[in-house]
Design a binder for these strands. Structure first.
Length: 438
RNA sequence: GGCAGGUUGUCCGAGCGGCCAAUGGAAACGGACUGUAAAUCCGUCGGCUUAUGCCUACGCAGGUUCGAAUCCUGCACCUGCCA
């Protein structure tokens, strides 16, 4: 992460360019960020009345945040840039419980694991927000006010405000009644609602947003503030980002779209956005970038009229990768892709360019004398020798951009690029470098 | 606590003594076509020194049998009905 976040660019910063920036609520609406919300007019009024303190939570369910969380991070940035005050909550407590999901009961993580993930998540969140000035962000951890809470207090002060019949009516809960749901997960909504109440009381926070799967938890908090304190708070939910066919993103390439560079290289991250379907490019530009309306509409037009140029995808990939990994990593990812997908002869590339490209795409080492099958496995392009053999048999294996027919082929010195490198490819897009140990 | 049903490969879901590494669908992967897009069509889809071979796998542990995902016993978990 570096300082090249779009927020620091005056040309795209809504807060410093009020003349071209419509009302914040209109802006969120235009970007398709309001999947659900409490009273919109009330929310609009609150936004115009003055700085709103708002919060968004991140549960440590993994060592890194992912694409779904990025929607919230970027949205939090938008609100801050529009003059409102962010509170980012890390779920040290809620992460110990786990919110109910359709796929079934979660496995509880240990306290140590959750604590470790909390710190990682906190570190990931911080670069996205501005911690200076009069709208400085604050990071809070719900473990701080939950850990010492007694069961009796919890049941009297919080539980009393939750009618079980209403809780049972929730979509997730209903869907889980057949397959089973523990009391622990069933109670999750109480914890998150209590978070909102606490932030409302102690920090004057009056708005919470989150993913649309959180809608029940968001309204739970609004309800609780009303019942417990007679207060009025707002909530909105961002849409679930899906592929053009409605299925979830991140099922390819072996898992979720992680923000952590160790878990997903900036190159792979950049490639993901670059390969987005035409129909989704505009939507994703609206959600994930700070490009102004006119520019996005121009990119929409480009996609419609000259889809093969993929201008929208290129711009999307550059913007989002820069936001998450910084300008330098983005430059390298692009350079790597240009070198590897350039279509030219790989041996024409300068050794330094090739090496840098392969480092970005993924590099491994293997002993000399390895067969193509062994190299594919070493490069991580196949998970077993059997799979590697199959790939060769299917005509999907390439060595230095040449299709390989013999699984037992042993590359010789003449095949080495930049001294000791081989470029392995599986299919059209999956590329990795292997350096032969001497 | 009682009775009934269930637990199969990444997921869903067949199989109900040998022909089962296990039908089918989805996902995924590869090819063709393209634009590193979508759709479509074709192929692949447990592992291994590629083998009329071995290993691992049908909730867990035992047992019956020449032979078990399939039968028996115990255990665990899930669901439903009754208390």
């Amino acid at each position: 992460m570096d300082e090249t976040t779009p927020g620091t660019d005056p040309a795209t910063d809504p807060a410093t360019d009020p003349a071209t920036t419509p009302d914040l609520l209109d802006e969120l609406e235009w970007r398709g960020l309001l999947a659900h919300s409490t009273d919109r007019d009330a929310l609009r009024e609150a936004f115009t009345a003055g700085p709103v303190r708002y919060y968004v939570g991140f549960d440590p369910t993994a060592p890194s945040l992912h694409m779904g969380n990025l929607v919230q991070l970027v949205t939090a940035m938008r609100l801050q840039q529009a003059g409102h005050v962010p509170y980012a909550l890390v779920g040290g407590a809620t992460g110990m419980i786990g919110d109910p999901r359709d796929s079934g009961e979660r496995t509880l993580n240990s306290l140590d694991t959750v604590k470790d993930w909390v710190e990682r998540v906190r570190a990931q969140i911080e670069p996205f927000l501005d911690f200076t000035g009069d709208r400085a962000a604050t990071v809070v951890n719900n473990y701080d006010w939950t850990a010492s809470l007694s069961t009796i207090d919890f049941l009297r002060d919080v539980g009393k405000h939750f009618p079980v019949n209403r809780m049972l009516a929730r979509e997730v809960v209903r869907s889980r009644l057949e397959s089973g749901i523990s009391y622990t997960e069933f109670s999750y909504v109480l914890l998150q609602s209590m978070d909102f109440l606490n932030l409302y009381r102690d920090h004057g926070v009056t708005l919470q947003f989150g993913g649309s799967d959180q809608w029940g938890n968001l309204t739970g908090g609004v309800e609780l503030i009303r019942r417990a304190d007679g207060g009025h708070a707002h909530a909105f939910a961002t849409p679930l980002v899906t592929k053009a066919d409605g299925t979830k993103y991140g099922k390819t390439e072996g898992g979720a779209l992680w923000l952590d560079a160790e878990m997903m290289s900036p190159y792979a991250f950049h490639q993901f956005w670059l390969n987005v379907e035409d129909e989704k490019a505009g939507e994703l530009l609206r959600i994930f970038t700070f490009l102004p309306r006119a520019e996005i509409e121009e990119l929409d037009r480009a996609t419609r009229e000259e889809p093969w140029r993929r201008e929208a995808q290129r711009r999307l990939a550059d913007e989002v990768t820069t936001l998450v990994h910084g300008a330098e990593e983005t430059r390298q990812a692009k350079a790597a892709a240009a070198a590897l997908f350039g279509g030219g002869d790989l041996s024409d590339l300068a050794p330094s360019t090739l090496r840098a490209a392969l480092q970005g795409a993924g590099a491994a080492t293997a002993p000399r004398g390895s067969t193509v099958v062994e190299l594919l496995v070493a490069a991580g392009l196949a998970s077993s020798k059997g799979e590697a053999r199959r790939t060769v048999a299917e005509g999907g294996a390439y060595l230095n951009n040449e299709r390989v027919g013999d699984p037992e082929l042993v590359p010789g010195d003449a095949d080495l690029l930049a001294g000791s490198w081989l470029v392995l490819r599986r299919g059209k897009k999956r590329i990795a470098g292997v350096e032969l140990a001497s």
